[in-house]
């Protein structure tokens, strides 16, 4: 039996996956204990974190597709699923790297894996509340739209709070220091994005130069 198949039918592995995934619910309601134990007691797993990120993408796409048109202003001709996914994954990745890079320099205890796991677990309220608000949006009328907006807003705020507490716990920071470093992380993200854009445009120009040189030569020779 190959290792993959063995992994898939490994009952203990599945049990651990589900228990770590279920732990996301505990983290939601007990953020301080939850995030501390997530890292230090190994009650979370990378698999569950990956699954939560995956669910975030699915939720985002389901929101676009299934939210009632009254609350959903999607201009379909310009929607690109890859773009939608990247618009979540890229900021997430850059955030984790930036945050880890910065906090490591300023005695943050968390490793890159910890930062990623904490951020992924913090996305749980967004997923759950958004998935609740999709069916609700198809039941309420425009007058009752406040249910939907409150649920959506609550999901985002809750996730935001969890990110803050998560960062506090995994880096063992005070609240002020966490907020300061979140702010610096955002600036760092902007710089990284700027550098990436610069890099890609330079590479593009470089490639373009040789491409046009080749074209020119071909044009002259034939």
């Amino acid at each position: 039996m190959s290792t993959l198949v063995r992994k898939v039918i490994n009952k203990q592995g599945w049990a651990r996956f589900f228990s770590t995934l279920k732990y996301a619910l505990y983290v939601m309601t007990h953020p301080f204990d939850g995030f501390w134990d997530l890292i230090h007691e190994k009650r979370g797993s990378l698999a569950a974190a990956n699954f939560l990120v995956f669910m975030t993408l699915v939720t985002r796409l389901m929101t676009l597709q299934y939210t009632n048109f009254m609350f959903n202003h999607v201009y379909w001709p310009e929607v690109n699923i890859l773009q939608q996914c990247l618009s979540i994954l890229l900021p997430l990745g850059i955030f984790c790297v930036c945050n880890w890079g910065l906090t490591t320099l300023f005695d943050g205890k968390g490793r890159l894996k910890d930062v990623y796991m904490a951020t992924a677990y913090a996305l749980a309220p967004y997923v759950i509340l958004q998935l609740i608000s999709i069916p609700i949006s198809n039941v309420v009328t425009a007058d009752e739209s406040v249910f939907v907006t409150v649920l959506n807003g609550l999901g985002l705020i809750w996730s935001g709070m969890l990110i803050i507490t998560g960062m506090m716990m995994i880096h063992d920071y005070s609240l002020g220091k966490t907020l300061l470093f979140l702010f610096i992380t955002i600036i760092g993200m902007a710089i990284v994005i700027f550098l990436l854009l610069l890099f890609f445009s330079l590479v593009g120009d470089g490639v373009g130069y040789f491409a046009s040189l080749y074209k020119e030569v071909v044009f002259r020779l034939y």
Binding site: F69, M70, V139, T141, A142, D143
Partner: peptide, 15 residues
């Protein structure tokens, strides 16, 4: 027609 107001009205009765 993306007419939210009338849609809501119809949906209220339908619901």
């Amino acid at each position: 027609a993306r007419d939210t107001k009338n849609y809501s009205e119809a949906w209220k009765f339908h619901r």
